[in-house]
Design a protein around this nucleic acid. Sequence first.
DNA 1: CATACAATGATGTTATATCACGTAAAGCCA
DNA 2: TGGCTTTACGTGATATAACATCATTGTATG
Lengths: 226, 226
Amino acid sequence: MGDYQPDTVADVLHANLRTQIWEGDFLPGDRVSIRALAQSSGLSVIPVRDAVRRLVAEGALCFIDSRTIEVPKLSYANHRDVLFARLQLEPETARRAFANLTQSDLNTLIDHDMAVNTAIGSNDLSRYMQANFNFHFHIYRKAETPVLLRLIEILWLQSGPSMRFIAGQYGAQTVVADYHKETTDALARRDCDGFVHALRADIAQGMDFILRAEQMEADTARIATP
Amino acid sequence: MGDYQPDTVADVLHANLRTQIWEGDFLPGDRVSIRALAQSSGLSVIPVRDAVRRLVAEGALCFIDSRTIEVPKLSYANHRDVLFARLQLEPETARRAFANLTQSDLNTLIDHDMAVNTAIGSNDLSRYMQANFNFHFHIYRKAETPVLLRLIEILWLQSGPSMRFIAGQYGAQTVVADYHKETTDALARRDCDGFVHALRADIAQGMDFILRAEQMEADTARIATP
DNA sequence: CATACAATGATGTTATATCACGTAAAGCCA
DNA sequence: TGGCTTTACGTGATATAACATCATTGTATG
């Protein structure tokens, strides 16, 4: 396998932007200008354009017309599709990771989960996104299956901004009911099926969250136009 | 949703290369040179590089070192992961397409299946790859779920060259047992579950094929070094 | 004859300048 | 003041040329 990882300035910028998107630093509808990014990063337009077009290829950005790039606003239908795909891929990826997860990994996961909880406690959406991402991907990376990891990365890239937007709209309290504790508990007692099941429940809960948000929006729309 | 589709020369080149990869015009290990592509297509290096890097982002190409780009050689493990992911995503995508498939679509699918069979009959691997791709993606495109379609496209991009290589190595006769007929039959009698099940069997058969090829390779290796 | 070293060529990357296009604001006329 | 035209600016896309890196090869030297 040619798993060589280039390290050009375009690659670094691309990686940074990806992280920012995963961690929820962008909101749906945010405009991205190649020249503005070039100026702010002190680079020429060529590597910036390279990084941006790569993000477009990953679905993290999109063209609104021939010369306007923005962070996509996922429709609820698309959001459901993302969560459906996540449900199909992530629990099984976690299953493969299970055998590779050590006591040290368990401790790391518990730390990430604590970071999630404190972020929710202090209503810090940014840290919540970051910690939640770290929790999940620490698992997936241990599965050592680059094919699945890549798909999952793309799904998170696409849904990150909209996820944060929806969460911010309906309050961080709504996301308090994650299943991280159940996940780490299952790992602690080396219960593979329980581990996978808890992770599945965590994603399914996100699905419920979207459905609920969609319903609320439909309701308010119905009330607004009786 | 910003589903604007640009149409620059880089986009056209990217689309052409994607089609070529899907249809099996490339083999694992084939080298790709940006300048050579630029010369053969009459373009500058900039748009060619753009298209190539987009393919790298999709996993259709990879860097072997800092300045060598080639078509990836999928390991058997990666190939199994691709087929696993396909199994997770494609049948369910087909299920969503089912309600949108008309009589005209059924006829088109039957035509594609016939093209597959004649390609196998004349041992034309290139046409086989092409027709098989057309058969599957005619279904998936009707599902109207861009998120899932995009993931499936990536999976086919990654596995296409290796798939063709393995098929070519062990003869086209080995792939004769597809489930396209069962799929179209189920569609003809409007049997959604049967439709989905047949498509799942078709992919699973591909999985068996890979496992068999892997086993054969292991056997010959065992014989070679007793 | 073998080895060290330098010149050459090929690679992907990037900077600069220009192109083509579209928007929006300013200007102009009724 | 309203509506149209024109101009200016900003956008991404592209061509050209220069840059950095590395493999190869030819040559010179021991």
